[in-house]
């Protein structure tokens, strides 16, 4: 059972790391702000989600597990909203750091 949970953690955290890597490569390689935002939100949402879900069996407590999931949900809400705000700034032509 414990080996199975460890395998779950390894697979999910590795998958999360792949999304982080892809998001970072996208941030560095994509040509404009909107596509870079698109790449970053994948790291926030999917990457962090997979890492959190992978770590939940390892923390040894329901409360800490719920706190981890809450962190993921908060990052998703704020990440999605901030991405919208930046995208609106870009569209209106006042990109703060082109």
């Amino acid at each position: 059972m414990s080996a199975l949970l460890d395998l779950w953690t390894v697979v999910l955290v590795s998958a999360g790391a792949v999304f982080y890597l892809a998001g970072t490569v996208g941030l560095l390689r994509f040509p404009d702000a909107l596509t870079r935002l698109h790449a970053l939100t994948k790291a926030d949402n999917l990457g962090l989600g997979l890492v959190v879900l992978g770590l939940v069996p390892q923390v040894g407590g329901v409360i800490i597990g719920i706190k981890l999931v809450a962190v993921w949900l908060l990052v998703m809400v704020s990440g999605a909203c901030v991405a919208q705000l930046i995208a609106r700034l870009v569209r209106h032509g006042s990109d703060p750091a082109p």
């Binding site: 809400v77 909203c81 919208q84 705000l85």
Partner: peptide, 13 residues
């Protein structure tokens, strides 16, 4: 807008 939305759901948390 999205900022007002964020400013409504985050304060309780």
């Amino acid at each position: 807008g999205i900022l007002a939305y964020l400013a409504r759901i985050l304060p309780p948390i």
